[in-house]
């Protein structure tokens, strides 16, 4: 489900956005765009196959608890 809808979005984005960027030869924007789309695709594939993706919430919680020294379960 994730993968299908992501692929639809990626196709749409390539047609609407990426091709004009390529045509205008905005290489920096082009590479950033491709980079983000690749991460987007990778995330979608991982989610489709139920791979657990690390969330920043837990590390941040432990850092904050460490710095401010309060005890949270």
């Amino acid at each position: 489900m994730v993968l299908t809808s992501s692929l639809v979005i990626i196709t749409a984005l390539i047609i609407i956005d990426l091709i004009p960027i390529y045509r205008d030869q905005q290489w920096k924007a082009f590479f950033v765009y491709c980079f983000f789309l690749t991460i987007f695709l990778i995330l979608a594939v991982l989610m489709e196959y139920n791979v657990k993706i690390p969330s920043p919430a837990e590390p941040i919680r432990s850092i904050v608890s460490f710095i401010f020294g309060f005890e949270q379960s």
Binding site: L13, D17, A29, V32, L43, M47, I53, P54, S55, P56
Partner: peptide, 22 residues
């Protein structure tokens, strides 16, 4: 990148898909 509009869509979609496992 001078023109931020150009990379708006993938940035937002990245955030929106990353919101799921967040």
């Amino acid at each position: 990148i001078r023109d931020y509009h150009r990379i708006a869509a993938p940035s937002v979609f990245l955030a929106s898909i990353y919101s799921i496992p967040l």
